[in-house]
């Protein structure tokens, strides 16, 4: 270790040795600073908090998505968007705008989401339905049921406490949702890295035969994972109501694909078995900085979509090459 040569190639190799979540985090920081240069006034503390607030919400939707993608075998939850909508509508309706009804609404949201996730999990584990097909079908069923039951008339109101808790400033200038998100980050780290469930989840994501022959109950782990994902997606709808204050029938849909992309940008393998929630958190930040930046630069929406898409493809290609270098 006497002489070090810094060539661009060596720097790339060095960068590639960094864990993807760190790369994503650095990228989010760089984008934010670049934004400050490109659009004066972009990089200020208020903007940072605002971005974190929006990223927190996306991050909460992506919790379940992270678990499901880690579980492998093309694991994915396409019903997450519909469940976000359902969670918000249930909260809106059950609380009817009354703060004291929030706990009841929350319980209903979690139970309903868990029930939907349980059906997903049972069908995927026992009927061997491909997750993509099952959860896409479930998205249709949930959306259809919402239409059927409400007939498009969404009665209810948002309880003011919800907005105060999550959306508005709670501690100093920091809104509650960011604090909630950080707490979730800690809990998720413990769940994934320090519980038997987490270890088993990674194991079934890599190789289900090995997992089973090592005593892991594969189907049970799978069902638990999809059930959790359902409950957490509906919970994200509960939190979303704090921002939107109102509900509509495709409220959650625009969040579905970003929730998957955040997971992937955070370095979780789409093929399963490897990943982290703090990666997803960094991924959500990258997406949100990018969105805000493009908007601040005054690029028209169509152009935003193009740039957004290209940058994501570049990131994912980079990770793909990194993996092939390692194997």
């Amino acid at each position: 270790m006497t002489a070090k040569t810094y060539t661009p190639a060596a720097a790339t190799v060095r960068l590639r040795r960094l864990p993807p979540p760190l790369i994503a985090l650095i990228l989010a920081g760089v984008l934010f600073l670049v934004g400050g240069l490109a659009a004066p006034g972009f990089a200020n503390p208020n903007q940072a908090i605002n971005i974190a607030r929006l990223a927190a919400f996306l991050g909460i939707i992506s919790i379940g998505q992270t678990l499901v993608i880690i579980s492998g075998n093309e694991g994915i939850d396409l019903s997450a968007g519909a469940l976000v909508t359902l969670g918000a509508i249930l909260t809106f309706r059950i609380s009817g705008g009354q703060n004291e009804m929030i706990p009841v609404a929350l319980a209903a949201v979690l139970l309903t989401g868990a029930a939907v996730g349980l059906i997903n999990g049972l069908a995927i584990a026992f009927l061997k339905m491909p997750p993509l097909v099952m959860t896409l079908g479930m998205a249709g069923v949930v959306t259809g049921l919402i239409y059927l039951v409400t007939r498009g008339e969404l009665i209810g109101d948002d309880p003011p406490l919800l907005g105060q808790l999550f959306s508005e400033q709670l501690i100093g200038p920091v809104p509650g949702v960011i604090i909630l998100w950080l707490l979730i980050g800690v809990v998720m780290w413990v769940v994934l890295e320090r519980t038997t469930y987490g270890k088993h989840l990674f194991a079934i994501g890599v190789n289900r035969t090995t997992a089973r022959l090592s005593g892991v109950r594969v189907t049970r782990t799978l069902v638990i994972t999809y059930t959790l994902a359902g409950a957490l997606a509906a919970f994200a709808g509960f939190v979303l109501l704090a921002f939107t204050k109102t509900v509509f029938l495709n409220l959650g849909d625009p969040y579905l694909f970003p929730s998957i992309i955040a997971v992937v940008v955070g370095g979780t393998l789409l093929s399963g078995g490897k990943g982290s929630y703090w990666g997803t958190m960094a991924g959500a930040l990258v997406l949100q900085v990018l969105t805000s930046l493009l908007r601040a630069l005054g690029i028209e929406p169509a152009g935003q979509m193009v740039i957004y898409g290209v940058i994501l493809l570049l990131i994912i290609t980079f990770y793909g090459r990194q993996r092939s270098l390692r194997q």
Binding site: T196, K199, T209, T210, G273
Partner: peptide, 25 residues
């Protein structure tokens, strides 16, 4: 059948035994 190729040696060694290390592990 025997290994989780992309996971660490420790995780492979302990896969059958994590239950015995409590919560949190």
């Amino acid at each position: 059948e025997g290994l989780l190729m992309i996971r660490s040696i420790l995780e492979n060694l302990q896969l059958p035994s994590w239950r015995e290390y409590g919560v949190p592990i």
